[in-house]
Every structure is written in C-alpha cells, then in structure tokens.
Simulated scan of single mutants.
Amino acid sequence: MSDEELDVAYNVRRKAGPELFARHMARYRTESERAVDGLPGRPGIVYDEESGERLDVWGVGGGEPRPVFVYLHGGYWMALSRDVSSFMARMLHEQGIATVVPDYTLAPKATLEEIVRQVRAAVAWVHRRGGEHGLDPERIVVGGSSAGGHLTGMTMVGGWQERFGLPEDVVKAAMPVSGLFDIRPITRIYVNEYVRLDLERAAALSPALLPVGRRCPAVFVVAENDGDGFLTQSRLFQPHWDAGDLMVVPDRDHFDVVLDLGDAESAVGRALVDLVRSV
C-alpha cells in the first residue's frame, strides 16, 4: 500500500469526521459514568509500583469470587483512559461478572514496550491480588478495542507469562475488538509521531508475528463499517489463531461497535457473556 492508502485504511478518526467522533467520545464518558454510578467496586488501585498506574474494579459481589473481564482501552496508545472505559461494567455485574479497567501510561511518554509491560502487569495483579477484591484469578478474560485490541493480543500470546510468575493459561479467553495484530503498517501513518516505532520493533510487538503458545478461546470482533485496515487485520489473525470466531457486526463503525459490550441484548454483549461463562 502507498502511504496515502494506509492512511485511508487506518485513520478511523478521519473516516468518522469530527462531529461523529465527538459524539462517540461523549458516549464513552456518559455511558461509563452511568454504568458505574452506585455500582459496588473499588476504583483507583495501584496495580504497578514501577509506573504507579491504577485500575478500577467494578461489579464485585458479596459472595463467591466472580469471573473478571479485563478491558484495555483504545486510543492508538496515546489517548483515552479508564475513566471513559467502563461502559460494560453494569451489564456484566448483572450477569455475575466483574470488570477491571486499567490505565496505562500513554505514548509518547511511554514506549509501546512499556505499555505492553504495564497491561501484562495488570493481568498479573488480577491473578495475584484479585481474590482480595472478589475476583476469581482462575477466570480472567481480556478484551480491548483498537489499540486495546492489540494489547489484548499481547496478553494472548506466549512467552511473557514466566517473567511475571504466571501460568501460561492465565488468560482463559479473549475478545479483541477492532484489534491490530501486525502493527508494522503503523510505522507509516501519523500515529508513529507518538509511538515512534521502526519496523524491527513493530514486528517484535505484533501478536501475529509472535509465538502463539497456548491458544485460548477468543472472539474477534470487528465492525462492518470499520477502517479497512482493521477489517483486514481481524480477518487475517483469526484463522492464524485457530481457536476463535470472527464476528463482523453490521451497522457499526470503529468507535461504536465496542459500546455494544454494555448491551446484554446485542450480539457482541451476548458473545462476551457467553465467552466469560465458558471459562
């Protein structure tokens, strides 16, 4: 692809246009605030002493430890936060599932290698400390949108768990939404002004190019009206993973498809609940 074609394929903010993009971002905040209003949980826990980054725990119950959905927000590794990323927490709570939403240090303040380390540290925190907060460390499902889909992929692959003292199967299932699995194209679009990757580092940070290890069950979600690059990435990685389903959601774009995680009646919401209950 030419640089211009890559921009068309991956610049989903430009595709949406400023007005629609602003509406989507407003929905992230309002639906997240509504979802956690009065919900049992504990926000603002430091999960990584090295960076000081924090996570929120939502939707825990008073009885048995609950399975947990760890949601990694998008924003091309350089935007958004946990404060606007908990829109699924109430729906999951009503289904007996807890939600954990971590922050990670944004680019360019942090390298992508450091961002990956932090989200893996968040998974390690859930496994080691989650039981203290009503979470079941043996039923961890990870998901995320866009850049968060890439980070989800980086928790699915093998080769990192031993460094954190974790079992290889710590992530029992995964749901990347509009994910990026081969990030080498990012080196040629505007995002690289922030993440500052070369081809060698991009390859080393691409789930599609890394050892698979154990293949956990997965649902790969992408929107019908997504950026062409994101559609292609999911369509290529899902068969490579060989342990998951591809869901192309009609009448959704890159930014609103993930909001369906908060709707138990939507195909995406049902798929998430079924995936968590399967582990």
Rank of each mutant, 00 (worst) to 15 (best):
W58F: 07
S234G: 14
D103L: 03
G143Q: 06
G158Q: 13
G74Q: 06
A218C: 11
V249W: 08
Q161M: 12
E31Y: 00
Y28K: 01
V170I: 11
G158H: 14
E50D: 12
E5V: 04
A124L: 07
S178C: 13
D274M: 09
M154R: 13
A22N: 12
D56I: 10
Q238N: 04
M91G: 02
A267R: 14
A79E: 13
D83G: 01
M88K: 00
P102W: 04
M156N: 13
A267F: 04
D103I: 07
W160G: 13
D3N: 11
H133Q: 09
P217W: 11
T105Q: 10
D136E: 09
V258L: 05
L205V: 13
V46M: 06
I97P: 00
D3L: 07
L151H: 12
G75V: 10
I115V: 15
A223I: 06
V191L: 10
L259D: 08
G41F: 06
R188L: 00
E94C: 07
V100K: 02
W125H: 02
R235C: 12
S146W: 13
I97H: 00
L6V: 00
S206F: 03
L246P: 14
R214Q: 03
I45P: 12
A147D: 09
A124S: 13
A208Y: 09
I186L: 15
T152H: 08
R129G: 02
L151E: 12
S206G: 05
G159T: 12
D251Q: 15
E64H: 07
G63M: 05
M1S: 09
Q118H: 10
E19W: 08
R82L: 06
H133I: 01
I183E: 07
R235E: 15
H73V: 06
R188Y: 02
F87N: 02
V101I: 05
V171L: 08
T232Y: 08
V276G: 04
V68T: 12
M247G: 09
R196F: 01
R117Y: 12
L210Q: 15
R27P: 00
A204P: 06
S145M: 09
A223K: 04
V258F: 04
G38V: 11
A267Q: 14
H133C: 02
V36T: 11
V157T: 15
E19L: 13
L272R: 07
V100I: 01
M154V: 13
L180Q: 14
D103Y: 05
A203H: 06
G59K: 03
L72S: 07
G269Y: 06
L199D: 13
A121K: 13
D251H: 14
D228V: 09
G41R: 07
E113Y: 06
F255C: 09
R252Q: 09
Y47D: 01
G61A: 03
R82A: 09
A121Y: 00
H254M: 13
V276W: 10
W58A: 01
L112R: 08
T99S: 15
D7P: 00
Q233N: 11
G149A: 04
E31R: 04
T187N: 03
R34Y: 04
E4A: 15
